[in-house]
Computed example of a mutant assay.
Amino acid sequence: MQTIKTALLSYGMSGKIFHAPFLDFHPGFEILGAWERTKKLIQVDFPHFKSYPTLEELLADDVNLVVVNTPVETHYEYTKKVLLAGKNAIVEKAFTTTVAQAKELATIASEKGLKLTVFQNRRWDSDFKTVQAILVQDLLGEMVEAEFHFDRYNPNLSPKLHKETSNAGAGILKDLGPHIIDQALFLFGMPKSVFADIRITRDHSVVDDYFDILLYYSDFRVRLKAGFFVREANPAYLIHGKKGSFLKPRGDVQEDELKLGKKPNLDNWGIESIEHQGLLHTEINGEIVKKLIPTLQGNYYDFFDGVYNSISNNSVEPVTALDGIRVMQIIEASIQSSNHKRAIVL
């Protein structure tokens, strides 16, 4: 088995929680270390890993793959340096801050024959995989509307300054937005037009913390919402077709288990609690059916396995640069729509 030597561009929450556990568990990856500017934390968890003092030293090492998991406003600059150094890249969401930046990175990767993928791990959440299965089985009939929520109750500002200062990568639209935008595009493709309302709702906030995006397709609509003042959670997914409906609460356990220090596996990882099952109410073979649907198993390992295969076998990336470009197109159209109070044709 080919070993892909990998390095991280930071070892904060995303490196420690979302990337290192899966890269360390997957037999096809070898983590060399992480770029750490001040706090030297990676060697606490992995004493044999390197703590690179500079990006240049990291890129000069024998690295095949670099995880760009730094603040959003740095993604374009750092990913460009990574690609120009001849390294494959995984880039956290949001991919970049503009469509133009995303397209330029995709072009560089293509010209150099490198793999460039966006870390849209929420495609491998248990709740979303269950929603996808319901649609693949065509249990709801012709689509009428869908609504995806990524809601929280947290009126306090984040202690992470890059998330709460006015910069090109800050705000909920580029933080939580890429998750559900990507999920919608993955299921339904690109819409014909976009209407959005983007607001600031928290006291003393200078960045957007609420959005309501409406994606217009030919025969149905998809609404995407997120905010910090939802104390009583809505279903994360509401799908309505001409035969029936499927409602699914957010229930994926992977992030919580990773924060507790649990290690991923291929057997019982990512299994939701039974009380988070989705409700299916539809018509099947002329009979009205209303029942709870067992949730499928989630596992972010599958994303990293897809990255491994894309590099070692030259297969398509699990999330392509084009996927990342399309998410940025929706984000840019949403900002334009909210500013001008009108729908934006794509």
Rank of each mutant, 00 (worst) to 15 (best):
M1V: 07
M1W: 06
Q2D: 01
T3Q: 02
S10C: 11
S10I: 11
Y11C: 03
Y11I: 04
G15R: 07
F22E: 00
F22W: 02
L23D: 04
F25I: 01
G28K: 12
F29E: 00
F29N: 09
E30W: 06
L32E: 12
G33H: 05
A34I: 04
T38V: 10
Q43H: 00
Y52H: 09
P53M: 09
D61Y: 14
V63L: 12
L65K: 10
L65Q: 12
H75M: 06
H75N: 14
T79R: 13
K80R: 15
L84S: 07
A85C: 12
G86H: 08
A89G: 15
V91E: 08
K93V: 08
K93Y: 01
A94E: 06
A94I: 00
A94R: 00
T96D: 03
I108Q: 03
A109I: 05
L114F: 13
L116W: 07
N121Q: 09
R123M: 11
D125W: 02
S126Q: 08
D127M: 00
T130P: 00
Q132M: 06
A133R: 09
Q137K: 14
D138C: 05
G141H: 00
M143V: 04
A146Q: 00
F150D: 01
D151W: 10
Y153G: 13
P159A: 04
K160A: 03
K163W: 14
T165Y: 06
N167W: 13
A168M: 03
A170M: 10
G171H: 10
L173G: 07
D175H: 14
D175E: 08
L176S: 15
P178F: 07
I180D: 00
I180K: 02
D182Q: 13
Q183I: 04
A184G: 13
L187Y: 07
F188Y: 15
F188T: 07
K192P: 05
V194T: 10
D197E: 11
I198M: 08
I198A: 02
R199C: 03
I200T: 06
R202K: 15
S205Y: 05
D208Y: 12
L224T: 09
L224R: 11
F229V: 05
F229I: 15
E232P: 06
E232W: 15
A233S: 14
Y237N: 05
K242C: 08
K243P: 08
R250N: 04
G251M: 06
D256N: 12
E257C: 05
G261M: 09
L266I: 01
L266D: 07
L266V: 02
D267S: 12
D267C: 02
N268K: 12
G270A: 05
S273W: 04
E275S: 13
Q277I: 01
G286M: 11
E287K: 14
I288V: 11
T295N: 09
L296K: 14
Q297N: 09
G298L: 08
N299Y: 10
N299H: 03
Y300L: 11
Y301F: 06
Y301W: 07
D302V: 13
V307M: 14
Y308F: 15
N313W: 14
S315N: 13
P318A: 13
D323M: 10
G324T: 07
R326P: 01
I331C: 01
A333N: 11
Q336E: 15
S338F: 03
I344D: 02
I344W: 02
